[in-house]
């Protein structure tokens, strides 16, 4: 599969990464190698094989609908780089 610089730019945008031109060149090459390697899997004949939704042979792990005490707000906010009025503060979201 051919990976272009535009694809790398798109993926970087989605992941909120700023890449230099050099990094983009390098990643284009590396990504193409990785994808080609994984592409090998397509050589396998998987007709008649059920798609796997989960690797564990486990189903229906549920909990009862019961509440427990939540965390103290101080603890929840303890790792926040910025906070204000009991809230997490994030860079301004402009619409």
């Amino acid at each position: 599969m051919k990976i272009t610089k535009e694809t790398i730019q798109h993926v970087a945008n989605l992941a909120r990464l700023n890449l230099t031109e050099q990094e983009k060149e390098k990643l284009t090459y590396e990504m193409e190698n990785i994808i080609s390697y994984v592409d090998k899997l397509n050589e396998l004949d998987t007709s008649g094989i059920e798609p796997t939704a989960h690797v564990l042979p486990v189903k229906n792990v549920f909990r009862e609908d019961k509440t427990k005490k939540s965390f103290d707000r101080e603890k929840i906010l303890a790792n926040a780089p910025s906070q204000e009025d009991g809230c997490f503060k994030v860079p301004k979201i402009v619409e």
Binding site: D85, K89, P91, K92
Partner: peptide, 9 residues
Amino acid sequence: WDTGSLVDY
């Protein structure tokens, strides 16, 4: 007016 947005989870 503020510089950031506040989040309540």
